Computed example of a mutant assay.
Amino acid sequence: MITWLTSRDPFPPLHCALGADSDAPGLLAASAELTPERLKSAYGQGIFPWYSDGQPVLWWSPDPRMVLVPGRLDVSRSFRKTLRLVQRDPRWEIRIDVDFSAVMRACAQASREGQDGTWITEAIVEAYSALHRAGFARSVETWYDGMRVGGLYCVAIGRMCFGESMFAERSDASKIALAALCAYAEAHAFEMIDCQQNTQHLHRMGAREISREAFVAHLARASRMAPPNWRFDKHVLARWTAASPFQAAEP
């Protein structure tokens, strides 16, 4: 039985989430509302919302958990050439938090293989935008010649980053934003970026699964650390464009 949460109810213990043999592995609870306060509480405990329009808010904590160690992002030889071009060409920029809500809406409109529609409803945009205004959500944006052409948004508490969604309107634009985020995260003692659930795309980019127990233990430490200033630009991409073969994975 899934717990129904009222506005004052705490989340149930994570071990109450449905197991791998269920129809909805990781499903923990449901509620009628989505507030920034509930969102921050959820992420701080290793829980995230994921549901479709017309459904109640569904709260998840899967086991295992998919995470990306920032320094282990899989940067192929061809993509490294792209990043070098981005560094040289002044038309390319990395901007932070220029228009968080617009990035979310662009992610909602992005077509994805095997998905019909989007879970990023207007209620989701409003709740995460409020979390952004409170300082706990960020957008990393790729700009070309004065136009936003890709990016991502994430939740960030202390030195813990939770990746949410990406979009690209130009080839590799979302990957450029992710490469910048990973380089910045590694330089500022973020040991992992939460990717939530396993997908082939994430696996190809270097993400791996860890137990929920290990994830929550790390989250408890990292979320108590002082946050960085969240100001960076495309120069962080030098992390991936150096000549050393140990700095990025080859195909």
Rank of each mutant, 00 (worst) to 15 (best):
S139Y: 06
R138D: 10
T142D: 03
E126I: 02
I120K: 04
A123W: 07
V149F: 06
G150W: 05
G151A: 08
W119V: 08
G146A: 06
I157M: 13
R138G: 07
A127H: 10
G135R: 12
G150R: 05
C154S: 07
V125I: 13
W143H: 08
C154T: 03
G146K: 09
Y144F: 12
E141L: 10
E141I: 05
R133C: 14
V149N: 03
H132F: 00
I120D: 02
I157V: 14
W119N: 10
G150V: 07
G151M: 02
G151H: 04
A127R: 07
H132N: 05
I120E: 01
R138W: 11
Y144C: 08
T118R: 08
I120N: 07
R148A: 04
V149Y: 03
I120S: 01
A137D: 11
I157G: 00
W119S: 11
V155Q: 03
R148T: 04
R138S: 12
W119H: 09
I120W: 04
T142I: 00
G158F: 01
A134S: 14
R148L: 08
L131Q: 04
A130Q: 15
T121V: 10
I157H: 05
I120C: 06
M147T: 15
S139A: 12
M147Q: 13
L152F: 03
D145A: 14
E122W: 11
G135L: 08
D145R: 07
H132Q: 08
G150T: 02
A127G: 09
G158V: 01
V125W: 13
A130F: 13
R133A: 15
S129H: 11
A134P: 00
A123L: 10
A137S: 13
W143M: 04
R148K: 11
V149R: 01
Y144M: 06
A156W: 10
L131E: 01
V140F: 00
G135F: 10
G151L: 01
G151F: 01
W143E: 00
D145C: 03
E126C: 12
E126D: 15
A127M: 12
A123E: 15
E122H: 14
A137Y: 13
A130N: 12
E126Y: 09
A127K: 09
G158L: 07
M147Y: 00
V125A: 14
T121F: 09
T121A: 14
W143P: 03
F136C: 08
A156K: 06
D145Y: 00
I157Q: 07
E122C: 12
A156F: 09
V140M: 04
V155P: 01
A134H: 12
S129Q: 13
R148V: 02
E126G: 14
A123R: 15
W119F: 11
A156P: 00
M147C: 11
F136E: 07
W143D: 04
A137Q: 10
E141R: 03
L131W: 07
A134C: 12
I120P: 01
G151S: 10
Y128G: 05
A130C: 15
A137T: 09
V149T: 05
V140R: 00
A127F: 09
V140H: 07
R138I: 09
A123N: 15
R138A: 08
A156L: 12
D145L: 00
A127Q: 10
I124P: 02
I120A: 01
A130I: 10
A123D: 15
T121M: 13
G150A: 02
Y128N: 12
S129A: 14
H132S: 02
I157R: 06
